[in-house]
């Protein structure tokens, strides 16, 4: 990963390679994301989600955040999607396509989605069109960890408590008795 980054960031100003990578990743990600929300097979949706999430991880690497990328793989692909698949199988999804997983009327939602995208895209292009990202080297893991354990220690502790609460909550909600 590192060496890939090193190779493509030789010349920070014109980095064709990064942009090519980005293009490939973005297209596959978007396709996967659309499949997630359109496929009528629940397991396929979860598997497409893996592709989309892996694309997000790849984007993190392009942005120089290796640690977040690996965490993305570990947590999302290794745990969250597995949980999804687990849940899908426990709730007895049918093996083939199941048209009842989505509403019949989708035009309203599509309109909302497109409208939202239009508004956001306009605002983003209007505001950030001049900003360039120059990623020379990946973010050091030590920097991230130092920051978490000093500046952001209280949010970190809060997250820990939240996770504990969620753990207990999930057990309480899901247990059979």
């Amino acid at each position: 990963m590192n060496s890939v980054l090193a190779a493509v960031s030789q010349d920070a100003d014109i980095v064709v390679a990064q942009n090519v990578f980005f293009g490939v990743i973005a297209v596959s990600m978007l396709y996967a994301a659309i499949r997630v929300v359109t496929t009528s097979n629940v397991v396929h949706a979860a598997l497409w989600l893996v592709v989309a999430l892996a694309g997000v991880a790849a984007n993190f690497i392009l942005l120089g955040s290796e640690f977040v990328a690996v965490t993305q793989v570990l947590v999302y692909i290794g745990a969250v999607v597995v949980l999804f698949l687990f849940g899908v199988m426990l709730t007895r999804a049918s093996l083939g396509d199941d048209e009842s997983v989505a509403q019949e009327k989708r035009s309203m939602a599509a309109v909302v989605g497109v409208l939202l995208f239009g508004v956001m895209a306009f605002a983003l292009i209007d505001t950030w069109s001049d900003d360039r990202l120059v990623i020379d080297e990946p973010q050091q893991v030590t920097e991230v960890s130092d920051s978490i354990f000093s500046q952001y220690i209280i949010p970190f502790e809060a997250i820990s408590v939240l996770l504990l609460a969620a753990l207990i909550g999930a057990i309480v909600v899901a247990r059979q008795d």
Partner: peptide
């Protein structure tokens, strides 16, 4: 490759194999 994430990356990647196993289990009908 030389990477500071090393073992963390290895553990993350190793967890992906679970998906393959679930795919195999489910896909076999």
């Amino acid at each position: 490759i030389q990477n500071d994430l090393g073992i963390y990356l290895a553990l993350a990647v190793s967890s992906v194999s679970v998906i393959g196993i679930l795919m195999a289990g489910w896909g076999s009908a």
